[in-house]
Amino acid sequence: MNRGRRYGVWAGGLLAALIIGLIGYRLLQPSSQSTRGVAVSSALGGDDNAGYQRAYMPRPFEFPADHGPHPEFRNEWWYATGNLADAAGRQFGYQLTLFRIALSPTAPPADSPWRANQVYMGHFALTDVADNRHYHFERFSRGALDLAGAQATPFRVWLENWALTGAEADLFPLRIRAREGDIALDLTLDAGKPVVLQGDRGLSQKSAEAGNASYYYSHTRMPTQGTVTVGGRNFTVSGASWLDREWSTSALGSDQSGWDWFALQLDDGRELMFYRLRRKDGGMDSFSTGVLVKADGQTRRLRWNDVELQPLGQWVSPHTRDRYPAGWRLRLPAEKLDLTVTPKVADQEMRLTVRYWEGAVAVNGRAGDRAVGGQGYLEMTRYDHR
């Protein structure tokens, strides 16, 4: 890497860390400041919205354009997770998330290739279940000098050599590549089921305040194959992935403290997404919502009171002392679903600039009188050590 490119990475990272740090300082309670990193919920609850568009009402989605960036909104992410295994049954989970964060709502003067009003943050994680290990990494860079960026046609979003790359005129086949030292991914994802528009035709309302919403769609089961590298050793793997796409300007309300997000792929061909927005008083917010995707791709929207969630036990991080549920019981009475969600590895805490728990989970339970299993990903935010 030449000197100018290395400086660009450093400067972009410092700027993004400063922005996120300021957001966290303004919004986090004092008890959270004693642990290194900021809560992910704080990065989405800022109030500096002047000049940005907000998500007020449903809108038509246009593909492939909407696979690309929406710089008129402040925040955006491309969020890929998946469960994989090799021919011998060795299991892996992965996450690659690329975030776009706007510094201002207008583009800077084009008088220098260094100038940018967008920064990118990346989170890359790999869970090796057999070895009970979770590897996680973070990068920042500015959206300039080809260090990081996003485009719709042909689809590409990248942060240096961490990238999601699509076909010439479509998202699929989608290639995911990331490497950090001797940990790496090189995967190809096929379309699988049709796209799912979350919430109200793609408008995901997060609180009662107008504009506290995102535009949100998902690909819930994408056949996946490729190579996982751990410690320099390559594993040929296959499995299923999940892609979430969201963009917004302000997502969380002032009375909300965090969320629990479930993305589950059941072995009867169905998928279930549900996020529980937690109020500061500990209750479930009525804007919590989700979707049940049937085997044929048809969907049923889930309201907050359609789903019953019960935390099972507690896991205390030996690194941060944050306390997370050690598992969950999830019930959907109308569908006679009764599921237990268990982390495949207990310690899948993301100890980065933004701090949260996210990792691969196993699913077991019943669908009526039938046993049902599955796997998926779980994200839990703002479980500090108070």
Rank of each mutant, 00 (worst) to 15 (best):
50 A>P: 03
59 R>S: 12
80 A>M: 08
147 L>A: 13
380 M>E: 10
6 R>Y: 12
285 D>E: 11
308 E>Y: 04
274 F>Q: 03
274 F>L: 05
201 R>D: 14
22 L>R: 14
134 H>C: 03
348 Q>V: 02
115 R>W: 10
13 G>E: 14
120 Y>G: 11
177 R>Y: 09
372 V>D: 08
18 L>V: 07
26 R>Q: 14
156 R>L: 02
277 L>C: 10
234 N>T: 10
292 L>M: 00
107 A>W: 08
23 I>C: 09
338 D>L: 05
141 S>Q: 13
65 A>M: 11
134 H>P: 06
192 G>C: 09
95 Q>T: 13
337 L>V: 03
234 N>S: 13
252 L>A: 03
171 L>V: 05
369 D>L: 06
73 F>G: 12
231 G>E: 07
385 H>Y: 12
111 D>N: 15
364 N>S: 15
288 S>V: 04
151 Q>Y: 11
153 T>C: 05
17 A>Y: 11
327 G>V: 09
31 S>V: 06
195 V>D: 03
129 V>R: 02
94 Y>G: 00
200 D>R: 09
291 V>I: 01
238 S>R: 13
346 A>F: 01
301 R>K: 11
346 A>I: 03
347 D>V: 01
313 G>C: 10
294 K>D: 12
300 R>I: 12
92 F>C: 00
115 R>F: 11
149 G>V: 07
171 L>P: 06
284 M>T: 15
311 P>F: 06
32 S>G: 10
67 H>S: 08
137 F>I: 04
126 L>T: 08
374 G>F: 01
291 V>T: 01
120 Y>A: 10
290 G>A: 01
64 P>Y: 04
197 L>E: 01
18 L>H: 09
375 Q>K: 11
36 R>Q: 14
330 L>M: 10
56 Y>T: 15
386 R>H: 14
147 L>M: 12
358 E>M: 04
357 W>N: 11
305 N>P: 00
358 E>N: 02
369 D>W: 03
364 N>I: 10
261 W>N: 00
